[in-house]
Design a protein around this nucleic acid. Structure first.
Lengths: 235, 235, 235, 235
DNA sequence: AATGAATGAGGCTTCATTCAT
DNA sequence: GATGAATGAAGCCTCATTCAT
């Protein structure tokens, strides 16, 4: 369910009625997804509840069965998005012990996802800008990785809060560039490399680590079934 | 005049009637300054033209003698702000030949100014977010300094556009932290140091350069009176 | 329902709640009738949408659930009025074969109605002036009668379009006189007589035909109950 | 001066400064002519004093040196137009004794002028619609001609007021057709013929009289310079 | 739950009018 | 007289919110 947000298509009937049970939750989900699309198109400020109802194919007043204010909508989308991100990053970083690598994986996943799905990118940028909660979730993950990396001797920053600001704002700035159409080969790795350097990783290490392949997870959202997750070997 | 934007106080009568003629220009200036204050308080999206009128102490309809839309207001504020910034940075960096130092001066001036005047900081963050023109002006300055630093052997980034993104977004992110109340000693230097490191400056040089004193200019906006303030000597 | 427009009284509660459902249609009707009354009082140009809301006893914003612009209001009133007129004239002229007589009946009905109900008259004059659609509807009826009259040897005009202009503009001019307070015995017949003469009917015939009694229809809007009501006998 | 209204070109400097004296009156004249053009373009209701100032190439506030309200502007244009019309018709009808012919000349002059100068036509239609004074002036002329024609045995109408309504409203209706683009050969004569018939002139006489040539007057507005051209005889 | 008509506060915009220069 | 900036009333329009069905 968390992954539905990245589907930018208006919900088709097949999406809308999967499973059959939980009818109530479906309307809510439709609203959250509709809000997400509107955020992507026009930003958070421009969401009108009227328009949200229309985008979700429900009546005007139905919105109020789920959200009291525009704030509530943002909250719901932010939480949904944070959950989704947590889920993904957790999945992918499972088994990666290297703190510096974990940071690059986080940065690069955001960038690659924004590259593949600019609508998702736009929406995330917008929500991030307005929703404290989402920032907290990301911050929590990041802080852990920074501390791990420091413990491991990779990072030499003087202040952790500033280090977090650098990582987060650079990543968002780079996402914005992507969404605005910048096209640079290996963009994700180049950005990650500079982030590592800012954190004090020597340039050669930064270059190497930021280019390591990102572990792949099966589409089925399962936390890597069976075996050594390493990277998926061809055979 | 360009500096007036940083005066966040509502115009006093002494400001209002200087000279006597040029009333039109004064009203326009009052509107631009009022808009700036509102941007600082509530962001760009929240500016309502009738509120602008009230803040500037003019009648509702008067606004329309100067601006047709909210966009126009942003444009005017953006241009004013860009001029002001250009002016200041040009003044301060005069005579600094070291590209790395010039970059730190730019970054630190933004941060220090935002620290001293959080209203100014908030407004700049908001305008930056929405106004392409302002971004262009800053980008132009920055690009020159990056190229100088590269030529001088300070920087080792792989892609200039990404380097610019890192510098700009980190600076804005740090300003946001400041405005939200973060209080860290030597904040400006610490941020500047990480920026230099991201650009490939070795950690020891980054630490030193980012802590050099910022050249002071007389308040009278004159282009460096007396002598060539030379460049900061090594020791 | 079509006849409601001629009731110029603000809707009473009995009118307002008939049936119970169909509330939307009732609001729309209330708005159309309110617009009609305002047209009568102040002309088409002077209709303000907020005044319309007040006159119809609905909230300001409700108007916009039905009409996007003042033009749309005029359109709705024009169509309603055209329907109403078609209905009436069709009813009354049923069974009249004489083209000249049909023309006089049309002219005289407009005049008599304006005489009895000056509010109706004013509104019709205004709407006619601005609404092409209404003119077309009237023109369609009139053209048929003119051709019938010509075929029957009553009319001797040289150009049908000019003949229509004469009939229509004379009728409207005469309505205007009535609304402005002119009071002349047999006004309707005198005007109709001159119209027939303009169309080439000899003065004696014109005098006679324009004074024939107008067929009465039952108030119940039914398309001639019982019997053929025949045509008005010669004497 | 009265003829200037029919010049639809914005006043050129040559027009604006003729003679050199009467500078004050020139501004007023410029305003009246500008109003006339706006009436032609958008109708009487749509005249905004702002726009009037712009059209007349004077400042906003200058309008108020001449007119207190929009009503006053209409009044001034109406009077100007009435004077102009009186002047012309008087000139042309000089020496025509036949009341029926005089009526046709009036009708046809309006139509021919509207045909040659649709801007003039539009403006006259608009002003006529709103300005009682203009109607009175026209009525005064017309009434005289009707009475003359009646005395001479041409007309057989039963009520003079109705007869006037027929003549005036038919003429205006026909002008409207012209302005809307109707194009019929001999339009002016055909309309005049029907008007005469409405007044009781036998069809053959009506046809003949309505086709008589209209006396020409020299462009120089002088009451027939040089030669006889049938000058008004004393008795 | 869902609906959607109705509401009315609030922001937008025009323009007649005033007034100091 | 002419100017044009300033004014503010008045009308336009949107949209968050309520509520009866």
């Amino acid at each position: 369910m968390a992954e539905e947000l990245s589907s930018i298509h208006p919900p088709t009937s097949s999406e809308t009625l999967t499973r059959g049970h939980k009818k109530k939750a479906r309307t809510r989900q439709a609203l959250v997804e509709a809000a997400f699309r509107i955020y992507a198109r026009k930003g958070v400020d421009a969401l009108a509840l009227n328009e949200l109802a229309e985008e979700a194919h429900v009546a005007n007043g139905t919105v109020y069965n789920y959200f009291r204010t525009r704030e509530d909508v943002l909250e719901a989308v932010g939480i949904e998005l944070a959950n989704q991100l947590s889920h993904r990053v957790t999945l992918v970083s499972q088994g990666i012990e290297n703190g510096a690598q974990r940071v690059t994986i986080g940065v690069r996943m955001f960038l690659l996802h924004a590259q593949e799905d600019p609508v998702w990118g736009s929406a995330v940028i917008s929500v991030f800008h307005y929703h404290k909660g989402m920032r907290s979730v990301v911050a929590a993950y990041l802080r852990g990785d920074l501390q791990t990396g420091t413990r491991q001797g990779y990072f030499r920053y003087l202040n952790e809060d500033i280090a977090m600001t650098v990582v987060v704002s650079t990543t968002l700035g780079a996402m914005t560039s992507l969404v605005e159409g910048v096209s640079i080969p290996q963009f994700d790795s180049l950005v990650a490399e500079m982030v590592l350097m800012a954190l004090g990783v020597p340039i050669e290490d930064a270059a190497r680590i930021s280019r390591l392949p990102i572990p792949q997870v099966s589409e089925s959202e399962q936390p890597t079934p069976v075996k050594p997750r390493g990277r998926p070997r061809k055979h």
